[in-house]
Write a protein that binds this DNA or RNA. Structure first.
Lengths: 353, 353
DNA sequence: GAAACCTGAGCGTGATATGAA
DNA sequence: GTTCATATCACGCTCAGGTTT
């Protein structure tokens, strides 16, 4: 391992440097570095040796500039969302075998989606994977007109033409949560919603529908929430003081549910003794032994895999993938991949007493 | 806003396309796009107009390839660490005014630091900012021989030549935590450590030293921990069952402390009634109303700002920045920026009863 | 004919040198 | 002399096409 590149000037070694050292043309070095065929075993070894000696590394930018394919997938994610972190992890894992690289662009305070996407475009990404995008439909449509775009966890109604959507059946997930609680004997079930967050509308609707189906329309109660712990905590304070207090609550997501749990514990409201709590997402958070949250699982690695697959499929002109399954009474437009959620029962739900 | 690029073939518009449309040379378009001087006001407007019409965006890769500076700072971070997320947020904010771009590379399951750094190097980053790197000192030394490298939150002993270090005075932070607890009347104070995590050794040492100074050497108790909630939860289970039980515990970081808090609550151990808990980092987590954790604050945005500053200073040949302040009895090598921590007292600490 | 190698062009920019008002 | 504009090359690499065994 050379501590310093063995090239005369301070510059980084290039193909030409390797070529000179190995006594071959740059084109041949290129062939060897790419592992393409067209080089003899002996010279191949000699070139690799030379490259190693001077610490050569191919310049990704120059490479991408020349070959008109960049094989780069741009991923926009929210820095503060564990759900996104999990997705990114899965996307890395899925992109590699498919032969694609990932360019990350974070949405953070002072760095909006517009900015995040622009940098990805400037980097010549071939396709965009947007995690829970909040951008207006018109903007997404505009983007989708320029390159393949996959929206993960955000459905759009009406469907945006050209936009790929990969999501969990949020309404179905909400239904599963309600069914589970009803099966345990609950009737007074509240929902802390996600406001304008991606998926919130469907979960709210799923909750409403399920409650009505069980003849519990009179018990429907939706509290304004959000996707952070604080949103959950605020709603939980309201619930803790409510009389009569619901015997179960379904939170918008795991972060929100965590806030609910903690507030209840501090207020002396026992979970699941006094009240059952269900989350959504099945992030790392929920699986932690000391949280042990019953939650609606999104198959995160599957979502990630499908997102990559859809982007790659579009890039490579593959035909539409088949749909994941049609849920009754709900038309799923083409180009939308809907994954079934799966309730994960853990320790925060029990029969009411 | 053009929904589709107005260029004949499906390709993305280039300088030449804009030039053709505006009836000027590509060089002039380049000048205009960079905002450089050498173009008349009228033509400048005409060029910008043409660029807008066909939806031209400069190709970052071609640009970086040509201009020998890339003005790119590579940032390696852990996807699952809120502390890193906060740092990245600060780094984005600091890099922009300095005129630098950020390239993110995540460390995740199946994607180690080696890999993360390699992609950054391939992208022609001019400097590296590594958040809590775990790589061996030899590897860091090798990297530092190639380009400016800043290690954030990980100190190295002995100092690695050429490596910039930006960190909080972890030992001092631990001392502040112990002092605070002692001032409240605690004597039996335990520490859940961070194992081999960056900063853990210093915090452990600071705890030991402070305990001894208060004449509480006999009460020193260090439990094996780590940097996740589960590590904290595991240690808390041990503590909850201990007789006599310490009246206070200082966790390695906020995540760990969160695990401790939750386990205590579930075990019926009141916080801060039965036991006080102190965290470390002051991440978003600690500030949440329902966690309300007393913690040793690292000035995250300051750390981020300094990290960017040190990287940029090295790139631009600026002289060594002055040191942050010399802590008694501790030699701080040149090239190391040490920031003073600040205890943030919230709701998880109180006098013992 | 195939395998091994080389030549030359060009990807989309930015900088320099040069010329025209 | 200053301002505005152009031509030309180089950045580091890949690829099509050619030459040699």
């Amino acid at each position: 391992m050379p501590a310093t590149p063995a090239v005369p000037d301070g510059k980084r070694p290039t193909l030409a440097d390797v070529a000179a050292r190995a006594g071959v043309s740059t084109a041949l070095v290129s062939i060897v570095m790419r592992g393409a065929k067209g080089a003899g075993a002996a010279t191949r070894e000699r070139v690799l040796e030379a490259a190693r000696e001077i610490g050569y590394r191919p310049d990704a930018r120059a490479r991408l500039l020349r070959s008109h394919r960049s094989r780069l997938l741009g991923v926009q994610f929210g820095l503060q969302h564990p759900f996104h972190s999990d997705l990114v992890e899965g996307i890395y894992a899925a992109a590699e075998p498919a032969g694609y690289q990932i360019a990350l662009s974070a949405v953070a305070a002072g760095r909006g989606e517009q900015r995040a996407v622009e940098t990805l475009l400037d980097d010549r990404c071939e396709a965009l994977i947007l995690l829970g995008p909040q951008a207006p439909a018109a903007r997404l449509a505009e983007l989708a007109g320029q390159l393949p775009v996959v929206s993960v966890a955000r459905r759009l109604r009406p469907a945006v033409p050209g936009l790929e959507v990969v999501r969990t059946a949020d309404d179905e997930g909400a239904r599963q949560a309600v069914d589970h609680l009803v099966a345990l004997g609950h009737r007074d079930i509240a929902h802390i919603d996600g406001g304008r967050a991606p998926g919130a509308a469907d979960r709210r609707r799923g909750y409403r529908t399920a409650m009505n189906r069980h003849g519990l329309g009179g018990h429907i109660r939706i509290l304004p929430g959000g996707l952070t712990e604080e949103d959950g905590a605020a709603a939980a304070r309201v619930l803790a003081a409510a009389r009569p207090r619901p015997t179960a609550v379904m939170a918008f997501n795991d972060r929100c549910a965590t806030g609910v749990l903690d507030t209840f514990l501090r207020s002396g409201v026992a979970v699941p003794g006094d009240i059952s709590v269900v989350g959504f997402d099945d992030t790392h958070l929920a699986r932690l032994a000391h949280i042990d949250l019953t939650t609606v699982g999104q198959d995160i690695s599957r979502l990630a895999g499908l997102a990559v697959d859809r982007a790659v499929a579009r890039l490579e002109g593959r035909p539409e993938g088949r749909l994941e399954g049609r849920l009754e009474g709900d038309e799923i437009p083409a180009g939308e991949q809907v994954i079934a959620p799966r309730l994960v029962v853990r320790g925060t739900t029990a029969p009411p007493r």
